[in-house]
Design a binder for these strands. Structure first.
Length: 911
RNA sequence: GGGCGCAUAGCUCAAGGGCAGAGCACUGUGCUGAUAACGCAGGGGUUCGUGGUUCGAAUCCACGUGCGCCCA
């Protein structure tokens, strides 16, 4: 039998089946870099409408992880798609460079503390550290295929940026948003320093545990004729002199209990347990809702002060008495409660942990040494109900390992209720688009509840608070003049200048204190909260760089940023301009393992981007990002990745098949739609439909829809039907025949559209395929325009829906016969149809119906009843070239094993 | 402990009061001209649990469990 395979036009392409991503991706990165594709995209869209995705700065203290990779890839997908749609899309990546984690890591490296180290020297080391990791992360992000202005990123430690921070703080201060007040912070009296949360280690410690009676005062002091007391519980007796309130839970029940030791008010849920500690019994005389107690008064037995009962919903019903001793100067919860009730923040303890003059009997004594004396004193007053010891987790200094205390110190705050700011924040939140929509509620609830923003930190690594203190009257001073002088010098020399230079050198010559006329100055030692740094990035980046604009179109970050960057950015922007710095905020969930648990070293379930890139390639990571619904938590595991590799191979193969069949086609060979087969016009309509739905999904930031739509398109419509069907036309029809050229015209349209639609996600593969495309017009796929949107021919699509229901039926019948071993290939099938005249007319309206179904013959006959399809083995002989069983096989005596069509082609007569 | 959110096939996602559906994976099978590919068919579900509303609940409500983020 003759071998006709050489007379058949098989696919040819340099685009390999095996992706070899790990090896090839770096070559494409090099190509994009050397050909300056990012810059060319900007040039191409110069003068077009802007679309700014403003990058939230990752923290520059380590390698990227899957969370940061997810975030950057999502941003890259958005930016690339908008760029191809013709928007001008400068993307300026940034890094957050100041703050505690870097300070902590550098101090550890240097094996020293912030009090022992030389500030200026240390700041240089910290800056080097931040720069080093920003550079490392930059390479890691680039490796993911992320496009951006990598040569000109923004760093929060650059002098320009720092000057913006100074300026923004100053403007807020000058317009009355900033004030100083006391706030409790962790304090190590051994190291004599404030400690950040990261510098705290919790260890089990024994503490005194005492129950103290605080007698009622005021109208309620005698209840049903009895003298009663609130019973409070504390493990820090030394904070009792600073007591300012008793907190009760407003929704819980409290009882007045009569006992041999006196009458006490305490939580109904706890009174029996508390009495049991002393083996007492008692009886309930009265009961109250916690709410009723609020506003009552009592006497602090140590100070004699008459103080109020307040409500707090954190009051526990599982330990203590339900009446919580509240000292706003010595605890964070107490502090916030104190703010709500405007209680004084007293903290009569000095930097070495000793009571100050205010606490007369024990002044100069260390608070821990005072504990037993205080307890003895309470006992002598007859208010000590019970004393024991308790072991609980207590904070210790990471450096000296000594227990720490809460002590109030002066801090700088931003007042959220100044000038209607809180209201403005809420209005602006309502005006923005939140994706997913729940984000609006989340940040709204936080903004409604949030306390004033504590802006100061007692640290080294950050931007100084540009305030001077008059040496004569000790008033803090910040004026337009002092501010612009500092800002100017920071812009020139960086914020180290604050440490290097004296106050006199930082201030304009002849500057005098507006309060007392004083002329000598101290500098503020505190630095700004690092959240303030990133919170002004919209100013530092969007308003200072050429070609950018304020506000940004999109902020896109993890959902934790509702409290973080989204909020701090919103506050600074609203405080300074009255407007939100973003129009749309997109949030994503966190990366978790196959079981939905977060990744941690202790669980041993950590996967790194580096691992994925090494074993599968960055492209698979990009596909993973696109395939998952990022609005929830995002799962990853080896099996998920393995699955994606299969999916990737499927898409890649479809691309390869399309490319292979275009090897001898150039755009000049194009066939007009009117001259195509109907099925070709159907394919174009289906493509159009896909372009519309995919574009809509991109615009709604629903990339997993993009992924599904494109993958389904490749599988359901291309591989399963259209491409399978086209093989006969492509392989066996005349090389330049209209039917073959028409098919190629459609395939080229499909391929170029598909590559464009895929490019924001599968950037490497789209580029690789594009470079293999004969007759490509542009240097890079990313310089192409997004496929044009046009309404698909709905009537045509509907008509073909009916065809596909028929096809489904035929395929099932063929499969039955295959199982019966009657036929193998569907081409061996003869289809007999009986059905209503309507069905028969419908089927007869298709040209080349057997080809569309990949069978050799179809006969249709009108009849009553249901549509009926039967399959027989065809009587015809198989053409050895096109493999169709055809009645004309043998007609041409020169080629007895071919059908007429093939015989003509082989003999050189094109058809 | 509080606020916000999530839970549908082994995996990724649909269906948002009316028969629970795709793709991948799996199984069977065809083809050998997409070949470490492609086609066809099939199996696979307590829709996290319990209770409620309803003629009818994966869907609405309540409680619970598990998980995540934020706060304490």
């Amino acid at each position: 039998m003759a071998d006709y395979s050489r007379t058949v036009l098989l696919p040819q392409t340099a685009f390999p089946m095996k992706a070899d991503l790990t090896r090839r991706e770096p070559q494409w990165l090099l190509f994009w870099h050397q050909s300056q594709i990012y810059q060319k995209i900007q040039e191409k869209n110069a003068g077009q409408p802007l679309f700014i995705l403003h990058d939230g700065p990752p923290y520059a203290n380590g390698h990227i992880h899957l969370g940061t990779a997810l975030n950057k890839i999502l941003k890259d997908i958005v930016v690339k798609q908008k760029a191809m749609q013709g928007f001008r899309t400068p993307y300026i990546p940034g890094w957050d460079c100041h703050g505690m984690p870097i300070e902590h890591q550098v101090l550890r490296e240097l094996k020293t503390t912030k009090t022992a180290v030389k500030p200026l020297e240390f700041r240089k080391k910290a800056a080097d550290f931040a720069r080093k990791f920003a550079a490392i992360q930059r390479e890691e992000f680039k490796r993911l295929g992320v496009f951006g202005d990598w040569e000109n990123p923004y760093l929060t430690l650059s002098p320009d940026y720092e000057a913006t921070i100074i300026s923004a703080f100053g403007k807020l201060a000058l317009s009355g948003f900033v004030y100083q007040d006391y706030k409790p912070i962790h304090w190590c009296f051994t190291c004599e320093t404030a400690l950040a949360e990261a510098e705290i280690e919790y260890e089990n410690d024994a503490s005194p545990s005492i129950f103290v009676a605080f007698p009622l005062a005021g109208e309620e002091s005698t209840l049903t004729g009895r003298k009663a007391s609130f019973l409070i519980w504390t493990t820090t007796p030394w904070t009792l002199p600073a007591n300012q309130a008793i907190a009760v839970h407003p929704q819980e029940t409290y009882v007045l209990v009569e006992t041999p030791a006196g009458c006490f008010i305490l939580a109904a849920a706890l009174w029996e347990a508390v009495l049991a500690k002393k083996g007492l019994t008692g009886s309930v005389v009265a009961s109250f809702q916690g709410e009723q107690l609020v506003g009552w008064h009592y006497l602090n037995p140590l100070t004699g002060q008459k103080l109020p009962v307040v409500a707090a919903d954190y009051v526990s019903m599982t330990e203590g008495t339900g009446c919580v001793h509240t000292a706003p100067g010595h605890g964070l919860e107490d502090y916030y409660t104190g703010q709500r009730y405007q209680l004084p923040i007293t903290s009569p303890v000095d930097h070495q942990g000793r009571f100050t003059e205010e606490v007369k009997p024990w002044s100069g004594l260390h608070v821990f040494q005072a504990n037993p004396l205080i307890i003895a004193h309470l006992d002598s007053l007859g208010v000590l109900y019970h004393q024991e010891e308790t072991v609980h987790a207590y904070p210790h200094c990471w450096r000296c390992k000594q227990p720490v205390i809460f002590r109030s110190t002066k801090q700088w705050f931003l007042r959220i209720d100044h000038d209607g700011l809180r209201q403005k924040l809420q209005e602006e939140i309502a005006k923005c688009r939140w994706v997913p929509a729940e984000g609006a509620n989340r940040i709204l609830a936080m903004v409604q509840m949030r306390p004033d923003w504590c802006l100061s930190r007692q640290r080294l690594w950050g931007v100084p608070i540009p305030v001077f203190y008059c040496s004569r009257c000790h008033q803090p001073v910040i004026t337009r003049e002092s501010l612009s002088s500092v800002e100017e010098q920071v812009r020139k020399f960086g914020s180290d200048i604050w440490v290097e230079k004296s106050a006199a050198d930082l201030l304009p010559a002849g500057f005098t204190c507006p309060h007392c006329g004083g002329t000598s100055w101290e500098k503020e030692k505190d630095i700004l909260d690092v959240w303030f740094d990133s919170g002004v990035s919209h100013l530092a980046v969007l308003t200072t760089r050429k070609n950018l604009a304020w506000p940004a179109d999109v902020y896109l970050e993890g959902s934790d940023q509702h409290r973080g960057w989204f909020q701090t950015s919103l506050i600074t922007a609203c405080g300074l301009t009255g407007k939100a710095p973003f129009r749309t905020v997109v949030t994503h969930g966190f990366v978790v393992d196959a079981e939905g648990r977060k990744m941690s070293k202790s669980l041993g379930n950590v996967i790194t981007p580096e691992q994925v890139i090494k074993t599968h390639g960055a492209e698979i990571l990009r596909l993973w990002v696109a395939s998952e619904n990022y609005q929830q938590d995002v799962r990853i595991s080896e099996s998920i990745l393995k699955n994606l590799v299969t999916v990737y191979r499927g898409i890649r193969n479809t691309i390869r098949f399309l490319l292979g069949n275009l090897h001898d086609f150039s755009p000049e060979d194009r066939v007009l739609p009117e001259q195509m087969e109907e099925v070709d016009r159907w394919a174009l309509a289906k493509l159009q439909e896909t372009i519309l739905s995919v574009t809509a999904a991109y615009e709604e930031f629903l990339f997993y829809r993009v992924y599904e739509l494109l993958y389904d398109y490749c599988n359901l419509w291309l591989s399963s039907f259209y491409l399978d069907y086209l093989k006969d036309r492509l392989y066996t029809h005349g090389k330049t025949s209209r039917s073959r050229r028409a098919a190629q015209t459609v395939l080229r349209e499909i391929l170029t559209s598909l590559l464009k639609l895929l490019a924001p996600i599968l950037s490497f593969t789209a580029e690789e395929a594009y470079q293999c495309l004969p007759g490509r017009q542009k240097e890079s796929i990313f310089l192409e325009d997004w496929p044009e949107k046009a309404e698909p021919d709905q009537a045509l699509l509907q008509r073909w829906e009916r065809f596909f229901t028929f096809r489904k039926l035929v395929l099932k019948k063929i499969e039955d016969k295959r199982q019966e071993k009657l036929i193998g290939s569907s081409l061996a099938a003869a289809v007999r149809v009986k059905g209503s005249p309507d069905w028969i007319d419908f089927l007869n309206s298709f040209r080349h119906l057997p080809a569309l179904l990949l069978v050799s013959e179809i006969t249709a006959q009108a009849a009553d009843g249901e549509l009926e399809v039967t399959i027989e083995k065809t009587r015809y002989d198989k053409c050895q070239r096109c493999w169709i069983y055809h009645p004309t096989v043998g007609e041409n005596t020169a080629y007895p094993d071919l059908c007429i069509k093939c015989a003509q082609i082989v003999s050189g007569q094109e058809c």
